[in-house]
Design a protein around this nucleic acid. Sequence first.
DNA 1: TAATTATATCAAGATATATTGATTTATTAA
DNA 2: TTAATAAATCAATATATCTTGATATAATTA
Lengths: 105, 105
Amino acid sequence: MDIFLKTVSALNDETRVLLLRFLDENGESCVCDLQNALQMIQSRLSRHLKILKDAGFLRVERKGTWAYYSVRTPLDRFRLEALEEIRHLEISLPELKKENKGCKI
Amino acid sequence: MDIFLKTVSALNDETRVLLLRFLDENGESCVCDLQNALQMIQSRLSRHLKILKDAGFLRVERKGTWAYYSVRTPLDRFRLEALEEIRHLEISLPELKKENKGCKI
DNA sequence: TAATTATATCAAGATATATTGATTTATTAA
DNA sequence: TTAATAAATCAATATATCTTGATATAATTA
């Protein structure tokens, strides 16, 4: 029950749905790329990324000071269905400016 | 997005997961049966049943003063997957005392 | 070593959601 | 028509979650 609620609770926020969609479409991204692309302040992103990671949706890989987040694979059945649902949502996502181009904020 | 969040938000509560599981296992039940079986006060049940209904998980049929709630069929793919997930949770559910036997509280 | 950069965490306030008891509405029974 | 029952809604309080800005941590660069 706890794991199910943690999974569902992670999905229950527009910011996190947006993050999942963005990372699913654009692949591995570091926090500052996400800051630029999604125009969110860092503490907010960091919080939501942690929630998604703890709920089993994302993985992180650290390279130096950077933290690269991406959708975890393989996802189990329910999480995958949720992602599939998110893939079909009508969301206008901003373009990605990747590879740390926009860091040093 | 709004519909997805409404669906997910409905799942994001232990009481409602319990209600879904109970109604899935025991079939159509009136509110006062649920009161007896789950030992919850009426306003609490009424609230959560409405949320589940509005999120597309339940249907209601009124018969006189009674309101019979049951899992809506057919469920769409994502809601069905959620229900499937709930079916596999380890939950200890109380026995059902059905058919208004326990009403007139 | 000191400064800089990226990220994580903390603290305070704002917003949302859940619980309870009281009230309202609607239907049935006396 | 009055009383009783079932269910929905409301009001107050409690609890949880989100946002922001400030601070802490850790790795890199000067």
